[in-house]
């Protein structure tokens, strides 16, 4: 009996296996971080990792939450987590609001110098961060925003990539919809709120994910702006733990690292279907 072989299925299987192998390289660090965060300090850097010891007792029998307890009780990770969530969520809301309004103007309104202003906004993306730190600090200092969480939230709102991404998505929305709304008596703000925003959910979600990653992981700007330990965000906490010149608290560092890493992953998983749609939709235009 001859077995019919479907060549495309075999190809798919090969591709799948290949992708699975590649994915291991990406998933393993997170898996290791998770495993290490649940182990006592002495076992964290065991070679080979206890996870591959083959004995169930060694693999899972010594799991403990001590690293997390140490991290939260002795290193103030709880407050840093709250600060990070607060800054990130607030900045996403504010940035989406500001950038979508700005993009809306560039997509649907005509005003003098529109192109030049748009190019000027985009050109700010090319400036290296290092050159902007001193003026950035100076402006915040003058506005009385240093050492305040609001001093972190507001500046993120001016995000040129967001303006570009959303504008490219907005210009794909049929102009006839806007015209119809205008005939029905809707003003600019109403059109933005009732038509543009609901139709742009994928782009907004993609933008929110990009912004989440940027703000959540940002270390340099928060470290420049903030002074009080009670205002520090997770990336700062991690760096400060690592600043122990000896006897580094590796258990607390790993537990905090796991928390810092897992939250953006969860956020991405929730919004991933919008992310791809939003990016491709936006850039194609």
């Amino acid at each position: 009996m001859r077995i019919k072989i479907n060549s495309s299925k075999i190809l798919n299987a090969i591709v799948l296996i290949f992708l699975l192998i590649i994915s291991i390289f990406y998933v393993y660090p997170i898996l290791w971080l998770f495993d290490a965060s649940l182990r006592p300090l002495i076992d964290i850097f065991q070679v080979p990792p206890a996870l591959f010891s083959g004995s169930f007792e060694k693999m899972f029998g010594i799991y403990t939450f001590n690293s997390f307890i140490n991290s939260f009780l002795n290193w103030g990770t709880g407050i840093a987590l709250i600060n990070s969530v607060l800054v990130t969520c607030s900045s996403i809301i504010l940035t989406v609001f500001v950038c979508s309004l700005c993009s809306y103007a560039f997509a649907f309104m005509n005003f003098p110098g529109k192109k030049i202003i748009f190019i000027f906004i985009l050109s700010t993306m090319m400036l290296p961060l290092a050159t902007m730190i001193a003026p950035y600090y100076r402006v915040l200092q003058k506005l009385g925003l240093t050492n305040k969480l609001i001093g972190l939230i507001i500046p993120y709102a001016a995000y040129p990539l967001g303006v570009f991404l959303l504008k490219q998505y907005f210009i794909k929305i049929p102009v006839s919809l806007i015209e119809a709304a205008k005939i029905d008596g809707a003003g600019y703000f109403r059109i933005w709120l009732r038509i543009i925003m609901p139709l742009s959910k994928p782009a907004l979600a993609a933008f929110a994910i990009i912004q989440f990653k940027e703000v959540w992981n940002d270390f340099l700007i928060p470290m420049i702006v903030l002074r009080s330990g009670s205002l520090f965000t997770l990336p700062i906490k991690l760096q400060l733990m690592d600043s122990q010149t000896f006897n580094k608290p590796y258990d607390a560092i790993i537990a905090t690292g796991f928390i810092t890493a897992i939250i953006p992953i969860i956020f991405f998983l929730i919004f991933q279907r919008y992310f791809i749609e939003g990016l491709t939709g936006g850039i194609k235009g």
């Binding site: 290092a130 730190i133 001193a134 950035y136 600090y137 100076r138 200092q141 270390f219 340099l220 470290m223 420049i224 700062i236 760096q239 400060l240 600043s243």
Partner: peptide, 16 residues
């Protein structure tokens, strides 16, 4: 001040 941002922060505040 975290060592990774120490010099940059010092420069920024000294300029200001």
């Amino acid at each position: 001040v975290a060592e990774q941002a120490f010099v940059q922060k010092l420069q920024a505040v000294m300029m200001d």
